[in-house]
Amino acid sequence: MDQSTPADDDAVITTADVAKVASLARLRLEPDELDRFTHQLADILGHAADIEALDLDDVEPMARPVPLENVLRADVPGPTFDRDAVLSQAPAAEDGQFRVPPVLGEAP
């Protein structure tokens, strides 16, 4: 399956990459969409090339902007939802459970 066509000459992302991330994200793309999204993502990533060039080896990453640590909750039960109310919002339910089409394969 070689569908890897670069968006530009020095593309940062190919249609094969986009097809892969779409599948990881559970999105289906029509061929024209694949092409369009690839060009758009290549543009955006192309803009991000400015930070790719930075040497940041000694810089700590900042995953969150608060300086908090050890935010903990006492192990005390709180309210739970009424099951019928919850299931009434579900697309499909049966026997007190969420019903889904057959699952192929087990969880990783």
Partner: peptide
């Protein structure tokens, strides 16, 4: 969603998401 999935995916995390977190520090 696709952009973010790409930025986090194997082989690209360091170049994209990881780098972006360092830029936040800068």
């Amino acid at each position: 969603i696709m952009l973010g999935t790409y930025a986090l995916s194997a082989g690209y995390y360091d170049a994209f998401y990881g780098k972006a977190l360092k830029v936040r520090t800068l």
